[in-house]
Lab assay of single mutants.
Amino acid sequence: SPEVQIAILTEQINNLNEHLRVHKKDHHSRRGLLKMVGKRRRLLAYLRNKDVARYREIVEKLG
């Protein structure tokens, strides 16, 4: 489901952010981070168009 995919991506994004705080010059990982953020944004847009209630619920849960 989109909610699960968004939750997994959010966790991976948070982990990668911590990694990049330590390894500032790791541009390869930064590119992966940007791809993940874009994918999460697309999934959220899809969910917002399909079911606003589910969209609001996941945004509330994940912050």
Rank of each mutant, 00 (worst) to 15 (best):
H19S: 04
A7R: 11
E60V: 08
A7F: 14
V37D: 02
I58W: 04
R21A: 07
Y55D: 01
R31P: 03
V37I: 14
R56L: 15
R30S: 06
Q12M: 15
L33Y: 08
Q5T: 07
R31W: 05
R56H: 13
T10F: 03
A45T: 07
K35V: 11
H27G: 08
Q12F: 09
N49Q: 13
V4I: 10
V37E: 08
R40D: 00
L47V: 04
N14Y: 07
K39E: 14
V59K: 03
V59P: 00
E57I: 05
V37W: 09
K50Q: 14
N14Q: 09
H19D: 03
L47G: 00
I58F: 04
G63H: 15
L34C: 13
R21P: 02
S1Q: 07
K25D: 14
L44S: 00
N14F: 07
R21Y: 03
S29C: 13
E3F: 04
L44C: 09
S1E: 07
E60A: 13
Q12E: 07
E11W: 08
L33T: 01
R54Q: 05
N17F: 14
D26M: 04
S1R: 07
V22T: 13
R41C: 15
L9N: 01
R40M: 12
R21G: 04
R42E: 12
V59A: 04
E57Q: 08
R30V: 09
V52C: 14
L16T: 03
R30H: 13
H19A: 04
E18C: 13
G38E: 15
L43H: 01
K50I: 15
H28C: 13
I8E: 08
Y46H: 10
V52D: 08
N14S: 05
R56N: 14
I13Q: 01
Q12G: 05
I8G: 03
V59N: 01
R54Y: 04
N49W: 12
K39V: 10
L16S: 01
Q12H: 12
K61A: 11
L33A: 02
R48A: 07
E60H: 08
N15H: 12
R31D: 08
V4Q: 12
I6C: 02
L62P: 01
Y55G: 02
K39H: 07
A45M: 10
Q12T: 06
L16C: 07
H27L: 09
R21N: 06
H19E: 03
E18L: 10
R42G: 04
N17G: 06
H28G: 10
N14H: 10
D26T: 05
D51K: 01
N49A: 13
L43I: 07
E3W: 05
R21Q: 07
L62D: 02
E57C: 07
A7K: 08
P2Q: 06
I58M: 06
I58V: 07
K61T: 09
R56A: 08
L20I: 08
K25Q: 11
K25S: 12
P2Y: 14
V4S: 10
L9Y: 02
G63W: 14
I13N: 01
G32K: 15
R21I: 07
L33N: 01
R41V: 05
H23Q: 04
R31S: 09
E3S: 04
A45G: 07
V22S: 13
L34R: 11
S1T: 09
P2N: 03
R30G: 03
R31M: 11
G63L: 15
V37N: 03
S1I: 08
H27W: 08
S1K: 06
L44P: 00
V59F: 04
V4C: 14
R42T: 06
V4K: 10
A45H: 09
L47R: 00
L16D: 01
I58L: 10
V52E: 15
L34V: 09
D51T: 01
L43F: 03
R56P: 02
D26S: 06
R21K: 12
N15E: 12
Y46G: 06
V59E: 02
I6R: 01
N49D: 11
S29L: 13
H23A: 05
R31L: 13
E57V: 06
R48G: 02
R54A: 11
R48Y: 13
L34G: 05
Y55L: 02
G38M: 15
A45W: 10
L20K: 02
A53E: 15
V22A: 12
Y55R: 02
I6M: 02
N49F: 11
H28N: 11
G32L: 15
V52G: 10
V37R: 06
R56M: 15
N15V: 12
Q12C: 13
L47F: 02
G32Y: 14
T10L: 06
E18F: 08
L62V: 04
L20P: 01
Q12Y: 10
G32A: 15
L44E: 00
L16F: 07
L47W: 03
Y46N: 09
D26P: 05
V22Y: 10
Y46E: 15
R54M: 08
L44V: 02
I6P: 01
M36K: 07
L44F: 02
L47Q: 00
N17A: 14
R31I: 11
L16N: 01
R54V: 06
L9D: 00
S1D: 12
E60N: 08
L9A: 01
R56V: 10
L47C: 02
R41S: 11
N49K: 15
G32H: 15
N17D: 05
R41N: 12
K39I: 12
K50H: 14
V22R: 10
L9R: 01
N14W: 05
